[in-house]
């Protein structure tokens, strides 16, 4: 009996709601499953068994309504840019954007003569984490995702609302 009481008291964790919410958010940011160009191959490799995104709580969702993170993985053509804007608007708050690779960040190899490429996805939607590379290795993407999780963990959603 005594043993049981001790055990249950061990299982109580005291925290603030703020911390709890941001902890919960940061440990399962589901990402929107779509790829734009060559960088998408590295994103797929990151999600596949060797690097395994699910071990950090990330899971691809095929609908923007269910996704928390949009990984812009590749060249943002002007034609696609109009779609990205729309998909971003369809995602539910809170939402985060990762700009993966030099194309999504600044136009990449098309920065000067790309008549059809948007020179950085941050011109149309806000970006949380930029990952350099052409393409970034899965390790860099993982690093970027962990940085994003860190950022989410430090958010204080309720106290910010009350302010």
């Amino acid at each position: 009996m005594e043993h049981d009481v001790r055990k249950s008291s061990d299982n109580i964790i005291i925290s603030s709601l703020d911390k709890l919410i941001s902890w919960a958010r940061s440990t399962s940011p589901w990402y929107f499953q779509f790829g734009l160009a060559c960088c998408a191959i590295e994103m797929m490799a990151t999600a596949a068994s060797r690097h395994d995104l699910e071990r950090i709580g990330m899971m691809p969702r095929s609908s923007p309504r269910q996704a928390d993170v949009m990984i812009v993985s590749g060249t943002v053509t002007l034609k696609m840019a109009t779609r990205i804007k729309r998909l971003y608007a369809q995602m539910a708050d809170p939402k985060y954007v990762i700009s993966m690779g030099s194309c999504a960040t600044s136009g990449g190899p098309y920065w000067q003569y790309g008549y059809h490429v948007l020179k950085g996805v941050d011109l149309i939607i806000p970006v949380d984490v930029y990952i350099p590379g052409c393409p970034p290795r899965p390790e860099s993407l993982l690093e970027g995702l962990l940085k994003l999780q860190e950022k989410i963990r430090h958010e204080r959603p309720i106290s910010e609302k009350l302010k």
Partner: peptide, 29 residues
């Protein structure tokens, strides 16, 4: 087939001039 229907001009022609904006998005750096 590749570009949007409202695109102006023929991009692979030598005398093509890159537009400055496309649907309010800046094109040249």
């Amino acid at each position: 087939i590749l570009l949007e229907d409202d695109w102006e001009g023929w991009p692979l022609r030598k005398d093509y001039i890159t537009p400055e904006f496309y649907r309010e998005m800046p094109v040249p750096k």
